[in-house]
Amino acid sequence: MRLAGRTAVVTGAAAGIGRAIARRFAQEGAHVVVADVRGDAGSSRDGGPPTTKLIETEGGLATFVQGDLTDPAQVTELFDRTLEVSGRIDIVVSNAGVFRGSPILDTTVEAWDADMDLNLRSQYLVNRRAVAEMIGQREMDGIRGRIVNMASQLGVTAPPGHLTYSVAKAGVAQMTRQLAVDYARHGIIVNAIAPGRVITGYHAGEADYVADGTVDAATEYSLQRTPFPRLGRPEDIAGAALFLASDDCTFVSGHLLMVDGGWTAY
């Protein structure tokens, strides 16, 4: 139970990677604040119960806060609510985002602004409030808090035709470096994860690929291009997030941890 007594906010945790991170952190004893723009009723988009219910069924502690994190007021609400229920924020995983984009000639000013709001500005808002809270907290073994930002392999390589996504994710990685430099002296550790091709329920058809073994052309290419003999799973990212969120991570800061099955090494 490496996160016993810790409070962790995980954004975008209703499904996919965020859900796996929230679940793993709860299994390690953290009180997890599950944040998502989608509600927590019914079933998860990935199938199965909502994330908070899943965690509670497994004996963990979770609180759901609904919010659109492109809206500063709702980011404020998320953190205020977290402080109400726990009084402290040890870990923030800024994961919420949407995979979309287009070539520059098809990217209108409106689309650019909307995508940057979703994939970069929202992470800035979450990071700003996280730092603001953590900097005033009591140290625990020299550390006041840990932030893990979700970047992407596609912020390192350039995915064909996804201008806003690659620029936003590269921005997330650079924001991570900047905050690491600015706040390491205050005991705030900031790192990012760059997932490669991870199979979640998010990409239409990929869940079927897992279930019945059929593979669409894009997935087949990813599989063939990835040195590791399978594509990523949300649990792979959860393992990396757990390392970066734990007491084991006190001398790693500003790092972009590639969890891509060797795609960028190849």
């Binding site: 590791f228 792979d236 757990l242 390392f243 790693v252 790092h255 969890v259 891509d260 099955g261 090494a265």
Partner: peptide
């Protein structure tokens, strides 16, 4: 847990 991390150089440099 690090199955999908490969070909990576992890900086542990503060």
């Amino acid at each position: 847990d690090a199955s999908f991390v490969t070909g990576h150089v992890l900086l542990v440099d503060g």
